[in-house]
């Protein structure tokens, strides 16, 4: 807004000055007799609206705002993160609420697709027992294998009853190689024995974040193998607890996040707050127990669509989980 005050002998003269200086678009904010006795004083203003309106501007602005904040509330996104997302979305020029939320997610979180071939460093999957590490390792290897690339799965989980049998079955079905390791030293050897043209994924033993020894051991595996830590965390958990878990695993060295079992939950707040609180790069969403097609890549636009219902006022159906199985792979 540009504001100017004009003083003239008479009102018509003052109005003439306004038009000359500010043009026809100007509006008069106030008119008064000049206190110093110099005739009349007019304050006029011109709207200088150069930027595009944001999505919370204008007549539909409040609706868009409510729709976004209700969706975040529904997913139990913690208030701190949801405020950040709302602020970021409000800063976006124009577009639809879905696109504004996508831009906000892009700003607040990091994304990368699951690998399609050999990676610079092997991936080590860590996380609580039962989160889906072994299944995710197999899913990652499967995505590489269907593209005709080679894959090796190294398992540290040889002690658990049936553990070895589980991975043997997976790797045989996928035509991937299987190696075993017992500790950080043998893991290091197993990694260096893998040829460069192999995608290497390491299936670690589940560690509770409250078990200091197990967490330290996990950190050792990561350090000696030179692997990239990928936290495998079940979706649908309490958002604050998920964030605390994620921070604990990030301290042990996790940098990426794959959230699992989103076919069996409806709310995404736990996943979002885990990724945000621990600054983990979201690498995919597990959407089925099956190895083929059970891991979806996710980008900001897809995530935004999962968070926002189709139409204002729509509610997710009881029958549909947070993320439908299979789609997108």
């Amino acid at each position: 807004m540009r504001l100017k005050t004009f003083i003239a002998d008479s009102l018509p003269q003052a109005m003439e000055q306004v038009r000359e200086r500010l043009g026809d678009e100007a509006i008069i904010l106030s008119t008064e007799d000049d206190p110093e006795g110099n005739g009349v004083r007019i304050t006029a203003a011109l709207n200088e609206e150069l930027e595009e309106p944001g999505i919370f501007d204008g007549d539909d602005g409040l609706d868009a705002f409510n729709r976004l904040s209700e969706a975040l509330e529904y997913h139990r996104v913690p208030v701190g993160l949801s405020d950040r997302l709302m602020t970021a979305a409000g800063n976006m020029d124009g577009g639809t609420p879905t696109m504004a939320l996508a831009s906000a997610l892009d700003l607040e979180l990091r994304f990368m697709p699951p690998p399609q071939g050999p990676t610079e460093r092997p991936l080590l999957l860590l996380g609580p027992p039962g989160a889906g590490k072994t299944a995710t390792a197999a899913k990652l290897a499967a995505q590489v294998r269907v593209r005709g690339k080679k894959a090796t799965l190294i398992t540290l989980d040889t002690g658990k009853a049936g553990g070895l049998a589980q991975v043997t079955a997976f790797t045989e079905a996928l035509g991937a190689e299987l190696r075993e390791a017992r500790d950080a030293e043998s893991l290091k050897r197993a990694v260096s024995a893998c040829p460069d043209n192999h995608f290497v994924v390491i299936d670690a033993i589940g560690a509770s974040p409250f078990d200091g020894d197990a967490m330290r051991e996990t950190a050792d595996w990561l350090e000696l193998s030179g692997a990239e830590g990928v936290l495998v965390l079940q979706g649908g958990g309490d958002p604050l607890e998920s964030a605390e878990f994620a921070i604990a695993y990030a301290e042990a060295g996790a940098q990426r996040l794959i959230a699992t079992k989103l076919d069996a939950t409806r709310r995404l707040g736990g996943v979002l707050s885990a990724a945000h609180a621990a600054d983990l790069t979201l690498m995919g969403l597990g959407t089925a127990p099956t190895i083929g097609g059970g891991l979806r890549p996710v980008n900001p636009v897809q995530l935004s669509k999962l968070i926002l219902p189709e139409e204002a006022g729509d509610e997710p159906e009881l029958t549909s989980p947070a993320v439908a199985n299979g789609a997108g792979t």
Partner: peptide, 21 residues
């Protein structure tokens, strides 16, 4: 003062944009 008016307007505008509620 005119500057108070324009600065207040700027605050109102940005607040309505970011937090219309």
């Amino acid at each position: 003062e005119p500057t108070s008016m324009t600065d207040a307007y700027a605050f109102i505008k940005i607040t309505k944009q970011k937090r219309p509620d």
